[in-house]
Design a binder for these strands. Sequence first.
DNA 1: ATTATCTATAGATCTATAGATAATGC
DNA 2: ATTATCTATAGATCTATAGATAATGC
Lengths: 220, 220
Amino acid sequence: MNIVHGIQGASHAGRHGRRKAATRAALIQAGQQLIAEGRTDVSIATITELADVGFGSFYNHFKTKDQLFEAAFAEAMESFGHGLGRLVEDVDDMARAVSIGFRVIIRVARAKPGFASLVTRSGSAALQFDGALRRTSLHCIGRGIDSGRFSMPGPETAFAAIGGSLLGVVTYLLGDPMSDTDELVDSLAAGVLRMLGLPDEEARSIAHEDLPEGVPEEYR
Amino acid sequence: MNIVHGIQGASHAGRHGRRKAATRAALIQAGQQLIAEGRTDVSIATITELADVGFGSFYNHFKTKDQLFEAAFAEAMESFGHGLGRLVEDVDDMARAVSIGFRVIIRVARAKPGFASLVTRSGSAALQFDGALRRTSLHCIGRGIDSGRFSMPGPETAFAAIGGSLLGVVTYLLGDPMSDTDELVDSLAAGVLRMLGLPDEEARSIAHEDLPEGVPEEYR
DNA sequence: ATTATCTATAGATCTATAGATAATGC
DNA sequence: ATTATCTATAGATCTATAGATAATGC
């Protein structure tokens, strides 16, 4: 299960470097799979078997299990966050940016249940993780508040509320994977825009617009 | 740290029964504390030491660590859920019921960070836990939808979105405990009511009403 | 006599490391 | 010569249980 994107820190010059990066990537991916399955209590031997590397190799890259799981979580979050950032970077209306982000994240979660489960299983860690996703979100929400389009107490709490509801909805859909959820998700996105302070009619209209070009076909 | 309420399954007749219940309660409470601290990877010996009972006693009550942690989580959720159910049971307007639930839960979370952390650390489990809290919430939201007061796709998704945002806000407040959050929380409750479909003005008004009699002084 | 806790421990499991093996770089 | 992986294992740690101890019930 290669979650979200390909190998991260690859392309060190030379075969040595590449081999090392490949081993590390295999460990990271095994870690991501185990987090997604809620099996972070397994032995290091189980991890290296899943990664299909020698037992001792683990210690070439990580000192402890916790260190591996932390890196595995962080890398999944970062590659996802950067992808999403690219997607909304030239959307000028912050209501549209939030709506697109919300709808795309849930579509990705449905298409990649392994990644979705990694995030929901990590509990509140996804909301606290200080990376691209959080920065982009705070920036968008902050701009919306400053422009007067959103009426919320502050970007941090708005992010907590919106991000939390996103996690809640993803959790729900993971547990009950129905065939067609696009209409449902758009309604929920409208709800989020209303929460941010948009009038019902405008919220519904924006939440049902077509998704922009940058979104990969499979999530449209 | 006795989370939320007192000993659960006590009051078995006879000293034997009471002693047994006390040992079980000590283990459960140790489990709750460890979940709250994110230390569920400790040894059984660590658990029994924290509970101040003999090592072997663990096996008189639970077969595995997982079984203890599951029971510890479930008991905390249930006693909390019942308390909240009593609080809103004779509120007739579902918008008010949701608003009260939201505001009280966050106040309790701030007053009892141990319990709050147990919930947020458990990730999505709190939203999926099939107990009193979930049943009461679904019932209230469902009535609100049926009466036309709420416009959401369905009670389950609305619960997922609201419950998730609640978790998100609790997580945020745990990480950044400011002195006075009542005004902030009321604003967020208004946001939730808007999400459910209430007009901004009415949402704000309801979210700022005094909390009802049943709420313990310390959460008013 | 029954029930529950407690201590002690055999056996299983896991971690961390040492040293061998294999591949690349110069 | 250097770098990384891999295998093997000593020592640490953990689990599950057996049997002793203590308290209650009849």
